[in-house]
Design a protein around this nucleic acid. Sequence first.
DNA 1: TTTT
DNA 2: TTTT
Lengths: 141, 141, 141, 141
Amino acid sequence: MLNRVILIGRLTKDPELRYTPAGVAVTQFTLAVDRPFTTQGGEREADFLPVVTWRQLAETCANYLRKGRLTAVEGRIQIRNYENNDGKRVYVTEIIADNVRFLESGNNRNQSSPPPSEPSNKDPFSGDGKPIDISDDDLPF
Amino acid sequence: MLNRVILIGRLTKDPELRYTPAGVAVTQFTLAVDRPFTTQGGEREADFLPVVTWRQLAETCANYLRKGRLTAVEGRIQIRNYENNDGKRVYVTEIIADNVRFLESGNNRNQSSPPPSEPSNKDPFSGDGKPIDISDDDLPF
Amino acid sequence: MLNRVILIGRLTKDPELRYTPAGVAVTQFTLAVDRPFTTQGGEREADFLPVVTWRQLAETCANYLRKGRLTAVEGRIQIRNYENNDGKRVYVTEIIADNVRFLESGNNRNQSSPPPSEPSNKDPFSGDGKPIDISDDDLPF
Amino acid sequence: MLNRVILIGRLTKDPELRYTPAGVAVTQFTLAVDRPFTTQGGEREADFLPVVTWRQLAETCANYLRKGRLTAVEGRIQIRNYENNDGKRVYVTEIIADNVRFLESGNNRNQSSPPPSEPSNKDPFSGDGKPIDISDDDLPF
DNA sequence: TTTT
DNA sequence: TTTT
């Protein structure tokens, strides 16, 4: 009934922009977030949290985020599952972001998710996109 | 650098209380959290999010939470990994809770995590506990 | 650049629905939220936090929320100011909610803020409403 | 029962460190947080949100925060009241922070609130401090 | 009263 | 000024 996540961390790599078969933009990146404590050996560890953004926000993230940049993300946790090559069901936990803040960048653009006023698969559009590996079934709204 | 999660959902089962080899209490349960939208077929789906609590908060959760109860959880996302029987590294994403609110219950007790003022493994204590299956290396602080 | 509030508490009174001069619905209520600690005299205190909702969410809150109901609110903190009768500037801190969860209710309806796809003052509508005391300048988007 | 605020913004001034009569450190500063939308005239507005930190976290904030610095704050909203010179009761809404992240700084130190393991007024200590203007009654825990 |  |  309520599912809210707020993260601040750094991108482990440049973001990756893909398109669904219907032409919807999806950007994925991983945020390294330091843990609030050190290990018994005095080491500071981090969690590497996968983030997914859709549509306009995906395009903006692909344009402005880069490896190493300090970034704030707001969204919700979601568990996606699919069948792998061995026919086994695999569960993936991801943060579906609806708000991303670029805390470091050349021009400091920031962007929130402009919510879809229309069903987005009304005007399917495919062909200009990158190779496809994400299903439209994964669309978060 | 910042990692905050807030969930409201219902327990899918009664919570499970375990003890680490050093005698530290750990309670695990899963929260079913409805997604904020319906699927293309009009179905409402949910995410089933694993929650972990430690020490005093673990004891309180084990005492007061039950299957089906509406519950609020505050914490952080953490990725734990271990080697499975096939020698493969498995990654598990969990919410480490430091605050749990019992939104439905007989007596409506609630509890926050009383933070560890002392290293908790100073006074190892084991023997009264349930069978052990969680390592002390997983201690969140 | 980021402003997020999540509250769980109880309404101190029934919510109040008003309309702006342009006919936009606004609902206000106060949430009593217990503090996480007791006072030196062992008393438990609460904060009484004013919440504002707009448009469709305002109508839903007016319909479903009632005094004493346990309620979760997501939104942002905003400071509004106006000139009072003495010509002095007064500052009011409020939570502008975009998501409200009815944790107790007859039928357990819940509602998120359906974001404005169009400028909402396109079709001003006034006359059926209650006496007006909120300016359209206070519109949060 | 739950009261959580997360902000990212910039300090409008250098932070101010004070001490209570019992010698407890308190640091106050204001965070300018841009609103997520522009006004009808295309202007971007901000909210100026007062933040309070206590004890060790207060000292760290006073040492490392400066005017203009981008800063993340986690805490809860609290309403404090006092009688002013005219004998009128005045209400002040503040964010009591328990976690502050320095997103810009020389050496990028960050600090969470080390929770009070002992009642802090056990060892009152006053005299080295700045002039006093905050009551020990305002202590958040 | 305010930050970039 | 306040809720359970």
